[in-house]
Write a protein that binds this DNA or RNA. Structure first.
Lengths: 340, 340
DNA sequence: TTGTAAGCGTTATCAC
DNA sequence: GTGATAACGCTTACAA
């Protein structure tokens, strides 16, 4: 690439055509490898060289306007609220989607949901919108499909009745922890639900997974609401140290909460895992940094990222809008350590 | 909003005009509050109602094509590689930028840099591009400016020579830790540099901050390369337990690495903070979950998010392209706990 | 094998 | 005050 003098305005395909000595249409044909159009290799080369020379980049909006739809895969997600785990998964899958020719856009909007949000997303004529299930309504989906969006995909812990779902099973986390605890002979189970706005919904689902699994064996699971706060954890540990109604197996919601509880139990003189087994989730670094080391539910991919991206791509090109299409993405394993 | 029958195609401003019984131009005037155009309040109301009725959302691409530039603030960042800390900061600032009328887009591209990347970004005619400094070249900046981008802003630990910089001071983290350790009488300093690709560059800068501060007091700081690995940490702790060349104050890079080291020192029978003080960084939850609790460098905002967003907005509207414009965003404090 | 021309939905410059 | 109308840059059917 030659280092040109600063262009006053970005080069257009007309500029390229002029430089290459061909028509503007030919430029479009060549650069898009238009099928069913025969152009001599020599002309192609001239066009490509001219484009390179001018630093030509096609005007995305003009292209979208003309074609009526973009190749954007829109992810209107608040990127921080979702865990680092999901975020890195998303990045890997995004990378693959890009290789399939999509433009992956994390769209910065947060509060809105329903048809108002859909209208905003629809402005960009995305090929696909992948969004948390709770932000979708029937009208929202309709608006997007009217805007030419090939498919809308919900992210949720259960299948959406409106559109295909990327199933991020959160019940399974709790279920896996419960199975592990029960298999090791624990019978009085408890599950932490974080007392933080935004996290509680996730906590409820993990708790439900624990409860469901316990129920299958004729047992119950107690709910323990816990804010991320040392004093609250100490109070809880003290009440358990006093005896009364102490569980012998606790699922700590995730590794952070489990570690918080673990530290408080230790401070209160309760033996882990002797008196209480503690299991975390997400297999984060902290699990190996506390003593005893934390047993944790590791979330693994059910399909590899390539496969997920390939399925998504397939759904987009085939305009699969069937709510019956459900793509489960995660699976679980126990990372066995010392706490339970 | 009335819940309409499914639209076959998204409503255009022409549809709105027809329904409101006005010309299409009038619709544009009303919805954009065009200055210097007198339109009766009654007409305005009719137009607005028609737009609402039809669920009209202007076609973003058509608007961009016509206006020559978008209101997109493009952040071509891999959202996972950057820490959770920066991510949540970014979200807050993004939210504010949105309130200033910008469309914040995290653009999914990763590998590319230089003019090739710039060309890809320029396709969308963004109003601003905020990107890591190392991905910019002179030609890249030129291409973006030619595409009408109001300003390009670098993110980096030192001011960019090409464009204005959002200064994320990483040296300061190490410097703050070193000051703290030195103030408490430690003299044989060491700093952990994570032996992980991708993290080492950050580690080097934090180390440099420690070294610089130590040097100002006539002392040196030792570099300790450490992978995130229990065995490696144990080996390091064992060598220090053996005596030899043991530091009395260690900066652990961040809380995860500091906690890793802390656990290994404990296992090796070294007293913390008695024999070695350990300081982490980022003030993550883990700092309160380990024993002794971890003293940590807390990264705080130098300006509040509102102010940062306001400055960015100002730079965009004024087309501030002056590399002398530097916006330092973070400041530091010590979260004093038990480890040092 | 290549060129001509229509039209995508907006905004903005003119006449009316 | 309001309504035609001409771009904006591109893709694609059709003409040459």
């Amino acid at each position: 690439m030659v280092d040109h003098a600063p262009a006053a305005r970005p080069a257009t395909s007309t500029d390229v055509a002029r430089l290459a000595g061909v028509s503007q249409a030919t430029v479009s044909y060549v650069l898009n490898d238009a099928p069913g159009v025969k152009i001599s290799e020599e002309t192609r080369e001239r066009v490509r060289r001219a484009a390179e020379e001018l630093g030509y980049a096609p005007h995305a909006s003009a292209r979208v306007l003309r074609k009526g739809t973009s190749d954007i895969v829109l992810l209107p997600l608040p990127p921080f609220q979702i865990g680092g785990l999901f975020l890195s998964w998303l990045n890997d899958v995004g990378e693959r989607l890009r290789q399939h020719g999509h433009t992956v856009v994390l769209y910065g909007d947060t509060r809105s949901k329903g048809v108002a949000a859909a209208r905003e997303w629809a402005q960009w004529r995305p090929a696909a919108v992948i969004v948390e299930a709770h932000r979708l309504t029937r009208a929202a989906v309709r608006q997007l499909y009217a805007a030419g969006t090939a498919t809308v995909i919900a992210i949720g812990a259960e299948p959406s009745p409106l559109v295909p779902t990327l199933l991020v099973d959160d019940y399974g986390v709790g279920a896996t922890a419960a199975d592990h605890l029960l298999d090791r002979g624990r019978t009085r189970l408890a599950a932490v639900v974080p007392a933080e706005p935004g996290l509680d919904a996730w906590g409820e689902r993990r708790l439900a997974g624990v409860a469901r699994t316990a129920a299958a064996r004729g047992l119950e699971a107690r709910r323990v609401d816990l804010p991320f706060d040392e004093d609250a954890a100490a109070a809880l540990a003290a009440s358990w140290a006093a005896g009364a109604d102490r569980p012998d197996g606790v699922f700590g919601y995730n590794d952070d909460y489990a570690a918080l509880l673990l530290a408080a139990l230790g401070d209160a003189g309760i033996d882990v895992p002797g008196q209480i087994a503690v299991v975390g989730a997400d297999d984060q670094p902290v699990a190996r940094l506390v003593r005893p080391r934390l047993t944790s539910v590791r979330v693994t991919g059910r399909l590899d990222d390539d496969a997920v991206a390939a399925r998504l791509h397939e759904m987009i090109v085939s305009r699969d809008r069937d709510p019956a299409t459900v793509l489960p993405v995660n699976d679980f394993a126990i990372a066995q350590r010392d706490s339970g």
